[in-house]
Simulated assay, not measured.
Amino acid sequence: MIDFSVLDDPAWHALTTDQAALGQRNGAAARFRAELTPIGGLARYDAEAFAELRPLVAPEDAVGLVSATHYRVPADWEVLQAVPVFQMVCEAAQPIPDIVPVQLTAADAEAALELATATEPGPFRTGTLGMGRYFGLRSEDGRLMAMTGERMQLGQLTEVSAVCTWPEFRGRGLAKALVSYVSALIAADGRVPFLHVKTENAGAIALYEKLGFAVRKELTFTVVRPR
């Protein structure tokens, strides 16, 4: 029986289980290494936990917290962004799509970062490809048209992340093929795929629902930095 409650604070549980080696921890606070992603998590949302998070955040850097918990950010922290997101889970069987993407490597980091920066699918940095298996689809001239991959892993759950396509290549079903492919790989590993999507992104939500994802809960992605 899968314990879906860990998804209320997915980063904290990933950083204290499957992906502990990818991050740093200080008491009730943890975060992934800065070159991988700015995401972090807290065991609880109080002043003491935020104080323990502070030494993990370099000057001029920020950290993103994704949680179902409603809390007040301490006065010595600045809120840069607070975005409501739906957390969607797929327990349905995933067929392998006809389109087979290529697995991205460190050599693709620059092209992947350029795509993510232009389309803003969520936090993405130069080392994000090192968090899991990422895949892309290329045009005939070799350009990376679209990509999707795995980010957080915890228990029997793996996050589908960085779903993005250059605007000029949209409408071809590339995102659908990539999400289907990555979700099928996750399911083949005996794990359940989940993802996060902005609550305002009706088009993406409709696509994910067609692929068997269902909204589990609304969370907030809050980006904060020490004052």
Rank of each mutant, 00 (worst) to 15 (best):
S5A: 15
V6K: 14
L7W: 03
D8G: 13
D9N: 12
W12I: 08
L15A: 08
T16P: 12
L22A: 12
G23M: 13
Q24Y: 08
G27N: 14
G27R: 15
A28I: 13
A30C: 15
A34M: 09
E35G: 09
E35P: 08
P38F: 00
A43F: 12
D46P: 03
E48W: 09
A49C: 11
A51K: 03
L53A: 01
R54N: 04
V57A: 04
A62F: 07
G64I: 03
V66Q: 00
Y71S: 11
P74W: 12
A75S: 11
A75G: 06
D76R: 13
V79M: 06
L80E: 15
A82L: 00
F86I: 11
Q87C: 14
M88L: 15
V89H: 11
V89Q: 14
C90I: 09
E91R: 14
A92E: 12
P95E: 02
P97N: 13
D98I: 10
V102P: 06
A106L: 08
A109H: 01
E110R: 02
E110S: 02
A111Q: 02
A112E: 04
A112K: 01
L113C: 10
A118T: 04
E120P: 07
E120C: 06
P123L: 08
F124M: 01
T126G: 11
T128P: 03
L129N: 03
M131L: 15
M131K: 11
G136V: 01
G136C: 05
G142R: 01
M145F: 10
T148D: 04
G149W: 03
R151T: 04
M152G: 06
M152V: 00
L157I: 07
V160R: 01
C164R: 00
P167S: 02
E168V: 02
L174T: 00
K176P: 00
K176M: 10
K176I: 02
S180Y: 08
V182Q: 05
S183W: 12
A184T: 08
A184I: 04
G190K: 05
P193L: 08
F194H: 05
E200P: 06
K210E: 13
K217E: 13
T220M: 14
V223P: 10
V224S: 00
V224D: 01
R227G: 02
R227D: 05
